[in-house]
Design a protein around this nucleic acid. Sequence first.
DNA 1: TTGTAGGCGTTATCAG
DNA 2: CTGATAACGCCTACAA
Lengths: 338, 338
Amino acid sequence: MKNITLKQIAETLGISITTVSKALKGYTDVNENTRKSVLELAERLQYMPNSFAVNLRTQESKTIGLVIPEVVHHFFSNVIRGIIEEAEKNGYLVIILQSSESVAYEKKQIELLVQKRVDGIIISLSNESNNETYLSQIITKEIPLVQFDKISKLIPSSKVIINDQKAAYHAVSHLIAKGCKKIAHIRGPVNPQNAIDRFLGYKKALEDHNISFDPKLVYTCTDVTFEEGKTFAEQIIASHPDVDGIFAITDLVAVGVLAYFNDHKIRVPEDIKLIGFSNWFMSQVVSPKLSTVDQPSFEMGKQAFNVLLEEINAKKEGIAFSPKTIELDTTIIEREST
Amino acid sequence: MKNITLKQIAETLGISITTVSKALKGYTDVNENTRKSVLELAERLQYMPNSFAVNLRTQESKTIGLVIPEVVHHFFSNVIRGIIEEAEKNGYLVIILQSSESVAYEKKQIELLVQKRVDGIIISLSNESNNETYLSQIITKEIPLVQFDKISKLIPSSKVIINDQKAAYHAVSHLIAKGCKKIAHIRGPVNPQNAIDRFLGYKKALEDHNISFDPKLVYTCTDVTFEEGKTFAEQIIASHPDVDGIFAITDLVAVGVLAYFNDHKIRVPEDIKLIGFSNWFMSQVVSPKLSTVDQPSFEMGKQAFNVLLEEINAKKEGIAFSPKTIELDTTIIEREST
DNA sequence: TTGTAGGCGTTATCAG
DNA sequence: CTGATAACGCCTACAA
C-alpha cells in the first residue's frame, strides 16, 4: 500500500474525511471513541499528511532558501550549519544554492527560490553584486528576506552582520600595539561592503595612531584565494621590504602569505607580523599559528534564521514588520603570528 | 498585485483557464492569436505557476534531500557543491540536513525528508550507524536512494564510493616504498565501512610487504578530530618510539599528528613519515606539506546526483531500476611528509 | 479551437 | 459531534 490519505482512513472507518482530519489535528469537537479509532488506524497505516496538499492549502512550504557565494568555505559552511540547525528546530527545511560569486547565478538562484515559493530567503551577496535590483523584487513580492555578511545597505531587509570596520580597526591596532610601523593591507574585492569596511577600518586605525596612510600598501584581491596571498606576499616583499605588518582580508589569504614567507625564510612574527580575519580552522594548524579576528559564523546563521522566522510569523499574522539589523561581536585572537 | 494565477489571466482575457494553461504549456491546439495574447499578458504580469499546485498535481517536488554527517567538513562541503550544481542543471533543488554523526538525528532527518515527499534522497551515513533499518524503509516507500562515502553494504541502493581498501593499501605501500618498517595506523571509528576498509587495506599492505601486523600499533578514533591526532601522536611516540611511519584515517587527524610533532621537534619526514587521507585543502598549507590520498569529492557529488536522477526518471516512467555501484578512483599525492 | 468537469489531498466553514 | 461542500491552483480527458 503506497500513500495513505485521509480518504482511505475515512472509508475504512466508514466516517467522513472531515472527521478524520479533525481527529488527527486534535480538534475538540470529535467524539473520544471516534478520535481513538482514527488515531489508531492512522498510526497503524503510518499515515503521513501529503505535504503537497498541505502546502497548497496553507500557502506555505515550511522551507526557506539560502543563497551563498560558496559552500566550500569555512565561514559559510559554519553559517549553513547554524541556519539548518535552527531551522530544523522550528520545523523548517533549508534549500541551499550557491552563487559562485556571480551576479548572474545569484539572480537565477533567487528566481528559483521565488518560484519554489519558499517561505523566506537568507542571502549573502556575491562579490560581483553592486546593483541588486533583483533583491528589491523579493521585497516587492513580500517574501521575508535576511541578508548577512556581505550585504547591500540599500536593500531594506533585516541584516545580520559584524562591524567590519571596527573589527578591522582592532586588528590593525593590534599590529600597531605589537610594534608595527608600516602596515600593508591585502584587501578584498572592490564591491563587497565588508571589504570596503575592513579597508576603512584599516585606514582609520593608521590615522588614529599617526601612521600615514599609503595607498601603495593596499593590495586588492579579485578572487580572495590562497594563491593571491602568496602572490601579494611576494609583491610586498619586493616593493616594500620595510613593511613590518600585514592585515589580510581573510585567513585564507593570510595563510597564503604565510606559505610564501615560510618558503622564503622570512620569519613571522620577528621580521613581519601578520593577522588574518574570520578564524578559519586552518589558522590554528599552520605554523606559526595565525592571529586573526574571530567572526561568530555559527551564531550568525542562527540569528539570521531567527530574524527571518520573526518576519515570516509577522507576515502570517498580518503584522507589520520593520527590518532589524543585528550586529554581532568579534574578538581578536592572538596567536603566534603577531 | 500579488500572486498571478491562471484564473486571473483567463478572466482578464475573457477565456477559459484551460486555454490559458494550454497556451502557456505550448499545446498545439490553441489559436495563434489567443496564444500570443496569453503569452503577452503572462509575461507582463510575470505569471509564475504556483509550485504548490504543480507539486500536488504532478506528485513530484523537483527537490531532493541530502543527509550528511557534517556540513563543516572539507570533504562533505565539496560533495554538497557537486550535488547542488548537478541538481540545479537538471532542475532540482536540494534540501540539506546534517546528522551530526548521530543515528537518532539521522533517522529524524530522513523522516523529515520522507514527509516532505522529496523526489529522492542522497545520504552518507553517520559513524554511529550500524543497523539502519530506517533506510530500508525508504526503499520500501520506493523513494529513490543513493548512498555515498559512508555506506551500508546491506542496503540495496545505488552507491557512489571509492575503494577505501585499495586506497589505504596504496597509501601504506607508499610509506613502505619510502623506507618505513614500522607503521602505525590511526583508524576511524569501529562502525563505518570506510574505516574498516581502510584498516583492512593497511593490514594487507603490511602483510604483502612482509611486515608483521601488530594490533598495538592501531589507534582508534572516536571523533576523528585534530585533537585526537595530537593525542595519538603523543601516545605513539611514548609507547613505540621506533615507529617510523603513520597512516591516518583522514587529513584532519594527520594534521593533528603533525602539530604534535612540530611542537616536539620531531622531524617529518626524517624521523617519521606521515600520510593522511582525503586531500583536505588544509593539507597543502601546513608545513611540511602533507602527503595524502586524493578523494574526488566534487565528482562524487555529481555522480551521486546523476545516479539518483536516473532512478527518479526510471521510476517516473515505470521502468525497473537496478541499483548501481560507482567506484571512483583515488590517487596518492606525494608532498613533503613522506 | 475552446471549454467543462474532475481530481490531486488537505483544510475550514457552516449547516445539520 | 458529524459531514457536506468549497477552495487552494493546476492539469488533462473529454465534450462541444
